[in-house]
Amino acid sequence: LQLFIKTLTGKTSTVEMEPSDTIENLKAKIQDKEGIPPDQQRLIFAGKQLEDGRTLSDYNIQKESTLHLVL
């Protein structure tokens, strides 16, 4: 599924993920695209901070969801 990652600067990146992927996997993919180390990334979806060990489906993240990346 395609996700949009929006940064505080207003920049939006697109990443392709599976519902079974963990937040950790997602942060690794963001690191590949943006060069931001996972330990500096905080991802927010629906007002919640996402935890590394959980999966996208745990948070009911659907295709074309927008996640907010806070550093």
Rank of each mutant, 00 (worst) to 15 (best):
L56Q: 00
T7M: 15
L26Y: 01
K48E: 11
D58A: 06
Q40G: 05
R42G: 05
R54C: 08
I5H: 00
F4R: 10
V70A: 07
I23D: 01
R42Y: 11
E64A: 12
D52R: 04
G35M: 05
S20W: 15
D32E: 14
P37D: 07
I30C: 00
Q62L: 11
E24Y: 14
A46H: 13
L67C: 01
S65V: 07
Q49L: 15
A46V: 06
I44G: 03
S65I: 05
G10K: 04
E16C: 12
K63D: 15
T55L: 10
K48N: 09
Q49A: 11
H68I: 15
N25K: 15
P38G: 08
Y59T: 01
G53L: 08
P19K: 07
S57E: 11
K11R: 12
S20M: 10
D52C: 05
K63H: 15
E34D: 09
L69F: 03
E51K: 08
A28Q: 13
H68E: 10
I30D: 01
P19R: 08
G10C: 05
E24A: 15
D21R: 03
L50N: 00
Q62N: 09
K63S: 15
I23N: 00
G35Q: 05
G47K: 04
K29F: 06
D58F: 15
E51V: 07
S20D: 12
K33S: 12
E16G: 07
L3F: 09
A46W: 09
N60I: 05
Q31F: 15
F4C: 05
L69Q: 02
I61A: 02
G35I: 02
H68Y: 15
L8D: 11
Q49V: 15
D21Y: 04
D58W: 13
D58L: 03
H68L: 15
K29D: 01
G35R: 05
Q41D: 01
L3C: 02
F4T: 11
N25E: 12
M17K: 01
I30R: 01
T22D: 03
L56W: 02
P19V: 08
I36Y: 13
E64C: 12
M17F: 11
L26M: 04
L3T: 02
P37E: 06
E51C: 08
V15L: 11
K48M: 13
K48P: 01
T14F: 11
N25D: 13
I5G: 00
F4H: 10
Q40R: 13
D39I: 10
K63E: 11
T55F: 08
K6G: 03
T9N: 14
T7Y: 14
M17C: 11
L50R: 00
T66P: 02
R54E: 04
F4V: 09
R54M: 12
A28K: 15
K33N: 09
L69D: 00
Q40S: 09
Q2H: 12
I5W: 03
E24V: 08
T22V: 05
T9W: 14
I5V: 07
D32C: 07
E16S: 11
N60C: 05
R54F: 13
R42A: 07
T12M: 13
T9L: 11
L67G: 02
P38S: 14
T7W: 15
K11E: 10
S20A: 08
L26V: 06
L26P: 01
P37C: 06
D21A: 10
L43D: 00
F45S: 02
Y59A: 02
A46D: 13
E24Q: 12
I23C: 01
S13N: 07
V15F: 14
L50W: 01
V70H: 09
F45H: 05
D58N: 05
E34Q: 11
Y59D: 00
S13Y: 15
S65T: 09
Q2G: 04
D52G: 06
G10R: 04
T22P: 04
L43G: 00
G10F: 04
Q40A: 09
Q31I: 03
L56N: 01
Q41N: 02
P38H: 11
K63L: 06
F45V: 03
L1Y: 11
K63Y: 10
T66I: 14
T55V: 07
D32W: 11
L43E: 00
T22H: 04
P37I: 04
I61S: 02
N25W: 10
F4P: 02
L67Y: 03
E24R: 14
Y59M: 03
E64V: 06
P38C: 08
Y59G: 00
L43S: 00
L43Y: 07
F45W: 09
M17S: 05
S20I: 05
A28D: 06
A46M: 14
T9I: 07
E34G: 05
V15H: 05
Q40T: 08
Q41G: 03
K11T: 10
Q41S: 04
K11I: 11
D21P: 00
G10T: 03
G10W: 04
I5Q: 00
K48I: 14
I44W: 15
L1M: 13
L56F: 07
K27P: 01
S65W: 04
D58K: 02
Q31E: 10
E51L: 10
L8I: 12
F45Q: 02
S13Q: 11
R42D: 05
L50A: 02
I23T: 03
S57P: 02
Q40M: 12
I36C: 04
E34A: 09
L67W: 02
Q41Y: 15
P37Q: 06
Q2N: 11
R54N: 09
R54Y: 13
D32N: 10
E24T: 08
R42E: 06
I44L: 12
P19I: 09
P19L: 10
A28P: 00
E64N: 15
M17A: 13
T9Q: 11
G47H: 05
S57I: 09
L8W: 15
D32A: 14
G53A: 10
L1I: 14
L71W: 11
K11C: 09
P38F: 13
D21I: 03
P38M: 15
L26A: 02
L8M: 13
T22A: 04
R54K: 13
T7L: 15
P37K: 07
E34L: 15
P19G: 08
S65C: 04
I23W: 01
L43C: 01
A46E: 14
I23M: 03
P38N: 06
D21C: 04
S13W: 15
E64G: 15
L67V: 13
D39Q: 12
P38D: 04
D32K: 13
I23A: 02
Y59S: 03
T14V: 14
I5Y: 08
E24S: 13
I30L: 08
I30Q: 00
E16I: 13
I44E: 07
E34W: 15
I5A: 01
Q31R: 13
T7K: 07
E64D: 14
P38Q: 13
D39G: 12
A46I: 06
T14D: 04
E24P: 02
N25L: 14
G35K: 06
L43T: 00
R42P: 00
S20F: 12
L3I: 14
Q2F: 12
D39W: 14
G53N: 12
G53H: 14
T7F: 15
Y59R: 00
G53T: 09
S57N: 10
N25P: 01
S57F: 10
I23P: 01
G47Q: 04
L26T: 02
N25Q: 15
G53Q: 10
L67N: 01
E18V: 10
G10L: 03
L69H: 01
L43F: 07
L3N: 02
K6V: 14
P37S: 07
I23Q: 00
Q31G: 09
H68A: 06
G53E: 09
L1H: 04
V15R: 00
G35H: 06
T9P: 05
I44V: 09
Q62H: 10
